[in-house]
């Protein structure tokens, strides 16, 4: 069984998420950009590589961490 009763969404929605590369192996992501009531919540994600430490988990791990929570 499925349903879709959610309205169309726009990027002006309060729960906007913004992600930007910081360097070749690192992305900075902010949840709740523009929402002044909660957060904002930043996350750093990284890509395994030979040259630098990982400042944050790969994005797939963060995704499953959200599931685990």
């Amino acid at each position: 069984m499925t349903q879709n009763n959610t309205p169309p969404v726009s990027l002006e929605t309060r729960r906007t998420i913004v992600a930007r590369p910081v360097d070749n192996n690192t992305v900075l992501t902010l949840i709740g950009a523009g929402d002044h009531t909660r957060g904002p919540w930043p996350f750093i994600t990284g890509t395994p590589n030979l040259n630098t430490d990982l400042p944050g988990p790969p994005a797939q791990y963060l995704s499953v961490a959200g599931w685990a929570a």
């Binding site: 963060l62 959200g66 929570a69």
Partner: peptide, 30 residues
């Protein structure tokens, strides 16, 4: 790494679903 997520009133930790979508945005950027 350690992260916190969940549902609580102070707004100090992100809920799980937005956390997962942040991961999707980060994955896309990567």
């Amino acid at each position: 790494w350690t992260i916190l997520a969940g549902h609580s009133s102070p707004g100090l930790v992100p809920p799980p679903f937005p956390t997962a979508q942040a991961a999707w945005a980060a994955s896309t950027a990567t």
